[in-house]
């Protein structure tokens, strides 16, 4: 039930991520120190935007063709179905970014250690993006201009994840401990894993009224 779709969206998200990340070295110039300093931030912001790109489609296609009605009246608990949607969103738009990030990080002359911290922080962080983003997508369902609204609604909620995700990489680059950042990211992940499916399910019911 998770593999409910075949998406060409994977490629769009991935290429968006690759292009945005690659534009910065071209624009900023080949100054290694600057690049190394901005790398965590750039990679993380690009990941945020890329994973948001496909959020609008998360429920809207189902809403349009009537599958969503069937989801709502399915005998299985709605939050589980919604969780399934969130997991599949992450698989197509989060996981590819995580896998791509270390390769892109090389452009910024990041050390091996920083690269692995970056990948790990994205691995913990991107599921949170899908979880929280789905709430926004559910709330803006059927609203005109929903795509833009999702960004306005969801981006502020992404800020803590950005801070701690990019912070972990910076801390490791500076030779400091980054355990605290990871603990906080992990805590965010657990909290959103518990609450987000439930909140998104409730928002879907409201949107369908």
């Amino acid at each position: 039930m998770l593999a409910m779709r075949r998406q060409a969206d994977v490629l769009i998200t991935l290429f968006f991520f690759i292009i945005v990340v690659s534009l910065f070295p071209l624009g900023v110039g080949p100054e290694m120190n600057i690049l190394r300093a901005i790398a965590p931030g750039v990679l993380w912001v690009a990941a945020l935007l890329a994973s948001m790109l496909s959020l609008g489609r998360l429920f809207s296609i189902d809403y349009m063709d009537g599958t969503l009605e069937q989801l709502l009246i399915s005998p299985s608990p709605l939050f589980l179905l919604v969780l399934g949607k969130m997991v599949s969103h992450w698989l197509v738009s989060g996981l590819p970014l995580v896998l791509m990030a270390p390769i892109l990080g090389i452009q910024y002359d990041l050390s091996m250690e920083a690269l692995s911290v970056l990948t790990l922080s994205l691995l913990i962080g991107t599921p949170i993006l899908s979880l929280i983003g789905a709430i926004g997508a559910a709330l803006t369902l059927g609203v005109r201009g929903g795509g833009v609204l999702v960004s306005l609604l969801v981006l502020p909620l992404y800020i803590p994840i950005l801070i701690f995700g990019a912070g972990a990489v910076e801390a490791s680059a500076a030779g400091l401990g980054y355990d605290a950042h990871f603990s906080l990211l992990g805590a965010f992940l657990l909290v959103s894993l518990v609450f987000a499916p439930w909140a998104a399910a409730a928002s879907l019911r409201i949107s369908m009224e």
Binding site: M4, D65, G66, S76
Partner: peptide, 23 residues
């Protein structure tokens, strides 16, 4: 009204998924 058929899936996949959703 909206029949919940996905364009990108085959007839049989559509049927299996809608049945799976119905438990």
């Amino acid at each position: 009204h909206m029949i919940g058929i996905k364009d990108d899936l085959t007839a049989i996949e559509n049927l299996s998924i809608s049945c799976a959703l119905a438990g």
